[in-house]
Simulated assay, not measured.
Amino acid sequence: MEVIIKLYQYSAYHNGFKVQDTTQIKSLGPEPIEVELKPFLLLEHKIAIGVFTCLKGAGKSFSIIRGYLSYGAVDPNVNANIKNSKTAGLITDIYMFPCRGKSASSQVDQLINAEQAEFNLSEYRDVNASYGMIWIDVEINPSSGCSWSKYSTSSNCEYLGQLVSSLKAKGKKVGIYSSAYMWETIMGSRSNCKSYTNVPVWYAHYDNNPSFSDWSTVSFGGWSKPSIKQYAGDKVLCSTGVDMNFY
């Protein structure tokens, strides 16, 4: 089991989720094996290297950087944040918040091409700019033209599959973030869309309980067990807001 830290900027809560000023940030990770502390960080805005260094000094070891914005564009800060995170010595992943109204494969191409092109620049050659995984954020999308609600639940499930397969075709490891509420809203039922249990799942349930003991009551998507749980929020570390997660 692990405690995972999520950095955030938010304006309100909606059905147990913090609604971000611009978008929402999520995490995933490996399945639990034994008791061990390896905190994680999730980052959505531009982060100075001093903050990464502070977090590293506070015992955090892993950051997940927002790579793709909810309205269908590459996050302009993704490459700088990856560089700063890696320079500070953190294991680094990225995540994408897809726009349902745009082609899944084209969004994946846009994200991968953008980061690969910039990492060919000399300013990034002094660090290992590669990252580990890409996490797909499956939740209600408020951005114009990007809502899942305009499509059938069956086609939403197929669309998620297009994202997963497109990322895998690029050689990327993939994970999925959602919750019982979000999955039911987008896929039509918590028991629908069971095609992706071969990738890890991370779920949100704010019960202040750092364990998976609630999974049987909030499970979705056919996963027999989760990889990470977001269970509490509103902490501060290195003058930055964080949420608490567990695996």
Rank of each mutant, 00 (worst) to 15 (best):
G29D: 07
N77H: 09
M244T: 12
T87C: 03
D207S: 08
W148P: 00
I91G: 00
Q20G: 15
A104M: 10
G175P: 08
S179N: 04
V218W: 01
S213K: 03
G188Y: 05
S70H: 13
C54S: 09
K38M: 12
R125V: 08
K150S: 11
G16E: 08
N15G: 03
K102P: 03
S103L: 13
F62N: 14
S130M: 14
G132R: 05
S103A: 11
S195F: 06
S165D: 09
Y181M: 01
G101F: 02
I136H: 08
D109V: 13
V199H: 09
T153H: 12
D243S: 10
G101P: 02
F17P: 00
Y151E: 09
I47H: 01
L163D: 02
Y177D: 03
C146H: 08
S130K: 15
A88H: 04
Y71W: 12
A114Y: 15
H205D: 07
F52K: 00
D109K: 14
P142C: 03
L37H: 01
I228P: 02
I5F: 15
Q116H: 10
N84K: 07
K229C: 04
S227N: 07
K194N: 14
Y203V: 02
N84G: 12
D234P: 02
P210S: 12
M244H: 13
S165P: 01
S195A: 13
I228Q: 11
N120G: 10
E158L: 10
Y131H: 14
S85E: 04
V164K: 13
I112R: 06
E36F: 07
V74N: 06
N113S: 15
V127H: 07
G67W: 07
F212H: 02
Y206F: 15
I186L: 04
M133R: 13
N113Q: 15
T153I: 09
S122T: 15
G67P: 08
V174R: 10
G241C: 00
R100G: 01
S27G: 11
E115Q: 13
M244G: 07
L237H: 03
G29R: 06
C54G: 07
S216D: 07
N192G: 04
P30Y: 07
K83V: 01
W215L: 00
S144F: 02
G161T: 05
Q9I: 04
P76A: 12
G222I: 08
T23S: 15
K225Q: 13
N192L: 04
F212K: 01
I25W: 10
S211V: 09
Y131S: 07
G101Q: 06
V164E: 08
I82K: 01
S70C: 13
Y196A: 06
V236A: 10
N15L: 09
E118A: 15
S239P: 03
L41H: 00
D214I: 04
K46E: 03
T240C: 00
G175H: 05
T185L: 10
G16I: 13
D207A: 08
G132V: 02
N156D: 09
S165T: 11
S11H: 01
G50N: 15
V3H: 05
L90G: 05
T23Q: 11
Y181D: 10
I186H: 04
V108K: 05
R66D: 11
V236H: 08
S147G: 02
A104D: 05
V78E: 02
K83S: 03
N209D: 13
Y13W: 14
T22I: 11
F62W: 15
